[in-house]
Simulated scan of single mutants.
Amino acid sequence: MKNLKLVTVATCLLTFVMSLNMSAQSNMMKQETKMVGGAEMYPTKNIIENAVNSKDHTTLVAAVKAADLVDALSSEGPFTVFAPTNSAFDKLPKGTVDNLLKMENKMMLQTILKYHVASGKWNASDILKAIKKGNGKAQITTLSGGTLTAWMKGKAVYVTDENGNSALVTIANVNQSNGVIHVVDAVLLPKS
């Protein structure tokens, strides 16, 4: 009889702890889930699993597929992605995207896309700390081997490429299971 009571108490305690854990996870998901391109971005999904659902990132997803980077960006990471929107790609000279998506330009496309990705998880607070530590500028080394410079204007965070072109971070801290995405309004280009 004592064993049955102990088992019952242990079962109740375990159920209670599990419900607290599930509640905490549910609250965490609600806090971290963000809307991007009309779709919820779940922190339990990886960069690719979320990006394919954003109607604002169809060009980026097509480019990632054409560059054969889907597996890389689905891997464990962590990665920080500065993700240009479709309208960011539209700002490029006419025909640029179509040209980059051609098989013969795959290496160039890979370089450009990797220029938007840094190793590690750089949340907005990490970037802001680095900007403060760097006296107003933070250097971020990308997977392509290039450098992006983060800086602030008022409360807005910008990222500048090696050619002096800047992109505004429009949505920060879109957490992923393998990193974080910061949505940007321009395509960043490595030094040519």
Rank of each mutant, 00 (worst) to 15 (best):
A150Q: 02
V52W: 10
G154A: 05
T85C: 12
F82R: 03
P43E: 08
G77R: 14
N163Y: 15
A167G: 04
S166W: 08
M22N: 12
Q176D: 11
K45N: 15
Q110T: 03
L143I: 03
Q31V: 04
G134S: 03
V7F: 15
N99Y: 14
K133C: 02
I131K: 05
K153Y: 12
L6F: 09
D56K: 12
T59Q: 10
P93D: 11
A62F: 10
K191V: 03
K129C: 01
G164N: 06
T85Y: 12
N163L: 15
E162I: 03
L69A: 05
K133N: 13
I140R: 00
V180S: 12
T44Y: 12
V61Q: 07
L113G: 06
A66M: 07
A83M: 07
T141Q: 05
S75W: 14
P43N: 06
I112R: 11
T11C: 14
L101K: 05
K2G: 08
Q110H: 05
V97Q: 02
A72G: 00
K114V: 06
F89I: 02
D68G: 07
P93N: 05
E162K: 06
D56M: 04
A186M: 09
D68R: 10
A124W: 11
V97G: 02
V174Y: 12
N50K: 00
V70Q: 05
S192P: 15
K65R: 11
F79M: 04
M22L: 15
A150I: 04
G179L: 00
K2E: 06
K155T: 15
V174A: 11
A67M: 04
K132C: 02
S166A: 09
T142S: 03
A67H: 09
K34V: 13
L20K: 11
Y42L: 08
L189E: 04
L69M: 06
N123G: 07
T33S: 14
D56A: 07
V97N: 03
S54L: 03
T80P: 02
E76G: 06
D126C: 03
A72K: 14
W122F: 15
S54N: 09
N123Q: 07
G146L: 01
P43K: 00
H182P: 04
K155E: 14
S75M: 07
V180L: 08
L14K: 00
L188N: 05
I140M: 11
A156Q: 13
I48K: 02
A150P: 07
L148K: 04
Y42C: 00
M29H: 12
T141R: 10
S192V: 10
L14C: 09
G146N: 01
N3L: 03
Y42P: 00
T147W: 12
A24Y: 15
T33M: 08
K45S: 10
